[in-house]
Design a binder for these strands. Structure first.
Lengths: 209, 209
DNA sequence: AATTATCCATAGCGATCGATACGAAACCTA
DNA sequence: TAGGTTTCGTATCGATCGCTATGGATAATT
């Protein structure tokens, strides 16, 4: 962490890098990497260009740090759901319902930054698109691992493909992200999640109905 | 259609507008609206800027015509599936399996133009993003209508929400679009579709297995 | 052949993009 | 207090963005 190891001397920063990064993250979340201009970042972060470049190197590095911050502050529900000591079906249920909440917060941009941050880009930003794909693939892999554990625990049928089902669950979350961006409410996303859960090969502890 | 009513006189076009529009469509499909520059369009369409602007007015109009062309030439499977004289479950099945094919053609960009064309944009391109959202909402509405017909025909339980299930199916297709963009094969997308179909409240005519 | 209309190619428009040069200001160490 | 280091604010940089002015070329119409 750069902002922890103050080397020595020099004029102190006149702003809080974490607050600035937070503003940048929300802007990237809303408009994506390429469509977010330095002018927009300047206004949202309340900084001058040299302040931004001195603290975050360049736009690409700023975006990557925004990704890290998003991962740490906005989608903890995922790791929580996948690591909770509950049956596999319940874990996936918490994952999808958590996404329903996280993708439709009123004070946040809709959907997931990992999806809307850079889906279609210019050739110059291909590395950014690849980075986001890596994040999405990592999520999918984490789900697959949880499902494999579920198979080992007897929660899921032995003949099931953990990778295949993980692709479905990750894809459902991506679809929820698009629906959220189209204005779906948290209730609609929850209903979406419940419907998606019906496809799981587990004896669903159905919602109280 | 402008290209049908030749008014009279004048020097004839030295290019085929439909071929040029096709090249533009594929470029927008791959890179999205904003990230596709006029330079890229020039090279792909084999035209000079004045030729493009004379034939298609401006970049935004060109994109809108590309959307129409995409709708007409690339996703006929959807209307076909929804209007086929088959039970509702089979219609949705054809819809999702058709999407699996259409989103992973080797000679085409992955996914759906209506999703990747403009998901996160600059404020200047908000109208374009809204236009794409309108297309997505229209697809969802078409599915909801087919589901309502299915309820009337007794294919689906009466207490089911056609709109809610349509949101799920449309969202699943959006999710498949993202997965296709991440390199999912047609087989993986078909498996995705089959899993998603298991959530439908119909006696599934399961795949021959 | 003369007129009119449309398209072609060359060149370049103003605006915005991401990123910086510069020198003054503000802190620490010695 | 002097030296060293970092950030500050101001003013831009060259490149690319979408787009167009201009004038010659090629057709149908009269």
């Amino acid at each position: 962490m750069d902002n922890l190891e103050k080397p020595r001397g020099g004029r102190p920063r006149a702003f809080d890098p974490d607050r600035a990064l937070d503003a940048a993250m929300h802007l990237f979340w809303e408009h994506g990497y390429e469509a977010t201009s330095l002018t927009m970042l300047r206004e949202a972060m309340g900084l001058t260009p040299p302040q931004i470049y001195n603290a975050f190197t360049d736009k690409e590095t700023l975006f990557r740090k925004a990704l890290e911050r998003y991962h740490q502050t906005e989608i903890g529900f995922a790791l929580e759901a996948l690591s909770a000591p509950v049956p596999t079906g319940e874990a996936i249920r918490r994952l999808l319902l958590g996404a329903a909440e996280a993708y439709s917060r009123p004070d946040k941009p809709g959907g997931c930054l990992f999806v809307s941050g850079a889906l279609a880009t210019s050739p110059q930003a291909q590395t950014i698109a690849d980075e986001l794909k890596t994040y999405r693939k990592a999520s999918e892999a984490a789900i697959a691992e949880r499902l494999a554990d579920g198979k080992a625990a007897g929660d899921l049928p032995e003949e099931l493909s953990a990778e295949g089902l993980a692709k479905y669950i990750a894809g459902v979350m991506n679809g929820m992200s698009i629906q959220a961006r189209d204005g779906a409410s948290v209730e609609e996303l929850r209903a979406f999640a419940e419907t998606a859960l019906a496809a799981l090969p587990v004896e669903g502890q159905k919602p109280r109905a």
